[in-house]
Design a protein around this nucleic acid. Structure first.
Lengths: 416, 416
DNA sequence: TAGAGTTCGTACAGCGCCTAAACATACTCG
DNA sequence: CGAGTATGTTTAGGCGCTGTACGAACTCTA
């Protein structure tokens, strides 16, 4: 938390001495961030924005140009009087990353460039609960192989691979400890993926929980959030939460955080896989919603599972609407708890909750209004995810790119 | 947050450029932290611990000596062969701070020195719900006046004043937005205190929630925690939580976090002041416990309120034991939620929960074991606070000292 | 069309901070 | 008492930011 922590890095960094190189790193990241977020900008404007000197910005920009992360763009944004500055812009194909999502309903890979554009996407659907971890990871590894090859053909340097999984991740060991909905326990996902890969992946591979990565994806690509403090509630068979405070992902000290699904919302409710009773997941999870709505003629997972439910909702099917309303109320209890504890001002509903938002919104809001103590001073925005079900893959791809953006000069060192 | 945020500072710092002065600041804090946490240490050992050069440590130590934050202590810890190093040690009276706690049952002030020793303590008991905010704050201001004078007499330079209040605090404005148990709304506590003060306080005054500050106090002075990630659950009439991840306090983006008391544990439970039903506070708060236990002949607040309950518990009074067990179970639900969301490995029970710990422990643990998903991989420690009811005052005093420890060279600048 | 005014980007001296190596100091061991 | 070792300080060197100065490029005005 301060310290939020980056996926893949150890949770508690040893106190490190600082020297001028760190100053350079920090300021380089500052300049790059300024260019990437505030559009085309001249060196002088960057200097004004960041508080650095024009001279300093000049040398840093030289290095970023050499690293291929930034490019000059002529003097488009001439502002009247005086010598026009040369516009600087983030070079989208200066770096890229491969995102991999392994979920109950299939595998998705995506090649995402530095600009956030998905340059390649491949999916393999099917209920993974029927297959062994080894078989799934072998498929996934080959899909990543293909994606790396595609990136190479597109001239994109792959700087990292991010992997999203639906379960508890041990960050230090890069091991998936428990994925109840997949039935996996203690799977060394990264090590196995590298083992099954045909080609060598010359870049870091980071593993993280899907809700955490979806939150990162939302932070990066999701429509302009008013703040960079929000919670992403990811709905599928399970329900997870990714917490972003001040732009930093808070995943708990050991990566086991964000397990919203097992919050108690109905102490006398149905038994849960986890051993407790009345877990949120049991009332707001996809399985329960479909069962309550009487949808039986659909696959139990994935996008396809929501489609028949959506058609019933649109038709005004009372049973379906009641089921979703009930889920919305349960979700409201969970969201209220999140907001009371974390004090975020925005909650984003992702996964299957995104398409269901129109029906979830009102009951959810009603519950939240009742239960959130600070509601009067700090209005809460609840909105569906823009990225929908691709948030996790995009976030997975973003994770390594984020490290790059936070320390842009590593790439020039490597090529030297 | 990381980013965690320091009480008193704005939640989202503008991206700032870094220069060599920041390097110095960082390394000075590193050296000071090393000396203060790892006992008496020679310059050479500090260099080895921090990774800095002996030369750098030398110059930094000179500055810290000049600032009066560190002192030399002869060559006590001679380690055999070679020239013995001169031991460096944190100078306890190099700085001090005044902590002020305003709670339902009274006001407490304390002068705490840099070594964490309480050098002066004064309390005024009585149910504050009977008095106006103005009267309470006037008393509090005068108590702080006295404390500042005492510190002056002891030769302690007062570097800051920390104020703990039981409610929602707006960090930016330094305003207490809502304290349901006091019946206060939108009180500019810091501004009022300075107004009522007789003497001028030449130092920063920071305001924060009592649970947050109690967590800071626990982090600082509470027995050696195995980790610096934990949650402090503070019990009184209300129930609050202070979350510390990797040594950083996470108070939410606007200071409204940690409201554990209004987590839902019994959807069909009794109505709560906050408008919802079945809040944790309604089942595990002091009022409810006393009522269930049949304790009517005691003040409703403060330490005295627990005493008759404790005697009944020790006597084996079944009604009292059942009441506390029920509170323990409710607390278990809340703690499980905290652990699932934040993934901490230690929970500290403070306030009135500390003396009740022997009776709360077992039912709480039972519930937690059932509900915490990661319990098998990451055992959870639940223990009572060492500081008891003084955690909040001590934490309040610590808050400004913490800023000083994080940037020790400010003091030498001021005196220059 | 020419000169004044303005802004942009770069070059250069200066300063602060860290590192590395050398040196003086102080103690133990044989 | 000298060799060996660890401590603390001194000095030269490198690096990064700042401030100033200067050439470049463009607009405005006469």
């Amino acid at each position: 938390m301060s310290t939020g922590s980056t996926p893949g890095s150890p949770a508690r960094p040893t106190p490190r001495p600082t020297d001028q190189a760190d100053v350079r790193r920090h300021n380089a990241a500052l300049v790059l961030g300024c260019v990437s977020s505030s559009g085309p900008l001249s060196r002088a404007r960057v200097a004004a924005h960041t508080g650095l000197t024009r001279a300093t910005v000049g040398t840093i920009v030289d290095e970023l140009l050499a690293a291929g992360l930034v490019s000059e763009q002529g003097t488009r944004s001439a502002s009247g009087i005086g010598r026009p500055g040369t516009d600087l812009v983030l070079r989208p194909d200066g770096a890229a990353s491969v995102g991999l999502e392994i979920n109950v309903d299939g595998i998705v890979v995506a090649v995402v460039d530095l600009g956030g554009t998905v340059r390649h996407r491949a999916a393999r659907s099917g209920d993974l609960r029927d297959r062994t971890a080894a078989a799934v990871l072998r498929s996934a590894a080959h899909m990543v192989d293909d994606a790396v090859a595609v990136a190479y053909d597109l001239g994109l340097p792959v700087r990292g691979i991010g992997v999203a999984v639906p379960g508890l991740v041990d960050l230090g060991e890069q091991v998936l400890r428990l994925a109840p909905n997949l039935g996996w326990t203690d799977v060394a996902v990264v090590e196995r993926l590298r083992f099954y890969a045909v080609t060598h992946w010359p870049c870091p591979v980071v593993l993280d929980n899907e809700a955490n990565l979806a939150a990162l994806g939302e932070l990066w690509r999701g429509g302009h959030l008013s703040t960079d403090s929000f919670v992403l509630v990811n709905g599928d068979v399970g329900v997870g939460a990714g917490v972003v405070l001040d732009g930093a992902l808070h995943r708990g000290s050991r990566g086991f955080g964000g397990e919203l699904g097992h919050l108690t919302v109905a102490p006398e409710g149905p038994d849960c896989r986890c051993g407790a009773r009345g877990c949120l997941e049991q009332v707001a999870g996809l399985d329960f919603i479909l069962r309550q709505a009487g949808v039986r003629d659909a696959p139990r997972t994935g996008e396809d599972a929501v489609t028949p439910l959506l058609t019933r909702l649109r038709r005004g099917d009372e049973r379906a609407i009641a089921a979703v309303r009930q889920a919305g109320e349960a979700l409201g209890v969970g969201v209220a708890a999140l907001v009371n504890l974390f004090d975020v001002d925005t909650v984003v509903l992702g996964g299957v909750f995104a398409p269901l938002f129109p029906w979830l919104d009102e009951p959810l809001q009603a519950v939240v209004r009742r239960r959130v103590l600070s509601a009067a001073w700090a209005p809460l925005t609840v909105r569906p995810s823009d990225l929908g079900r691709d948030a996790a893959v995009i976030g997975a791809a973003y994770a390594p790119l984020r490290d790059l953006l936070a320390d842009p000069l590593t790439v020039v060192e490597e090529s030297a």
